Simulated assay, not measured.
Amino acid sequence: MLIRVGDDRTSHIDLVLAGLLSSIAGALNAVGFLIAGSFTANMTGNISALADHVANGAFMIALSFGGLVIAFICGATLAAITIQAGERHGVRTIYALAITAEAFIVLALGIALARSAGNTHETLFVIALSFVMGLQNAVTTMISRARVRTTHVSGMATDIGIEMAALFGGQKMKQDALPKLKLHSLTLICFTLGGVCGALIFGFVGFWLFVIAACMLLFMSLPEVLRARRG
């Protein structure tokens, strides 16, 4: 799931990757809103909020939303640089290692929040979480050659509309659209369910949700690292 790249990947592998990672992204995005009132995976909304606050003269608040966008871009940039370097040096496990790094960042955030009893600066928390979302989205985009995007909800909703329209076209258009429709619909559904479950679980276990999310990421990535090294 985190070893094969691009055309070497099957549609089933992409579906599993999209389902798992979009669920985690949805959960973290929902918890970010519950803790700090900001969506860490929604860059369209954050840029809109930035523009609105600038127009109203609330420049400091606008700056915080700008920080979320910059953090998301930095996470994606760092992931891309690391992956490109790994691919140049033939590191087959580079994508799995990137998800492992995400797991440890999420775990560190959970520990920091738990130790501070929820008094951690909210802006710093959501900026760090936006960094994580950018990292994850870059990993899934690069490994699937842009077929899988786990936080790009607006784009997925648009793609679903285009693919549904293609179902009314010729047979070739239907054949091309159906796998994409299945993938994007699953991603959108899992992101939504992840958000619902994340909010509910956070209400019961609090910051242990981050430990659960980190364990899920490690469960995905570490077996892939070991399998690739054995191979």
Rank of each mutant, 00 (worst) to 15 (best):
A165C: 10
G155Q: 11
S130F: 11
H152W: 01
L135R: 09
Q136C: 08
L129M: 14
H152Q: 02
H152G: 00
R147C: 00
L129V: 09
T140H: 05
I160S: 03
T151W: 02
T151C: 01
H152C: 02
A166D: 15
M133H: 08
A157L: 15
A146P: 09
A138D: 00
R147Q: 03
M156D: 03
S154C: 12
V148H: 01
T150F: 06
V148P: 00
R145I: 05
G161R: 05
Q136T: 07
L129I: 07
T158N: 14
T151P: 01
T141E: 06
V132A: 13
F131E: 13
A157T: 13
I160N: 03
A146H: 12
R147L: 02
Q136M: 08
M156L: 13
M164V: 13
D159T: 00
L135P: 13
F131Q: 12
T151F: 01
L135V: 09
D159A: 00
G161E: 06
V139F: 03
S144A: 15
A157D: 08
L167M: 10
T150W: 04
L135G: 12
M142Q: 15
V153K: 09
G161I: 04
G155E: 12
I162T: 06
R149K: 14
S144Y: 14
F131V: 11
A146M: 11
H152F: 02
T141R: 05
T151Y: 00
N137F: 01
M133G: 08
D159F: 01
A157W: 08
M164F: 14
V148T: 05
V148G: 01
A165W: 05
A157P: 05
M133Q: 11
I162E: 02
H152N: 00
R147V: 01
M156Y: 02
G161C: 07
I143C: 14
G134T: 11
L167R: 05
M164A: 12
I143G: 15
M156E: 03
R145Y: 08
A166G: 10
G134K: 09
I162C: 03
F131P: 13
T141W: 04
M142N: 15
S154Q: 12
A138Q: 00
L167G: 04
T150I: 15
V153T: 13
F131K: 10
I160G: 03
L167P: 03
T141D: 12
I160L: 05
T158D: 10
M142W: 08
I162S: 02
I143V: 15
T150M: 07
I162W: 02
T158R: 13
A157Q: 12
S130D: 12
R145M: 07
I160W: 03
I160P: 04
T140L: 07
A146W: 05
L129E: 08
M164T: 13
T158I: 14
L129K: 03
A138P: 00
R149T: 06
R147T: 02
M133E: 07
T140M: 08
M133K: 07
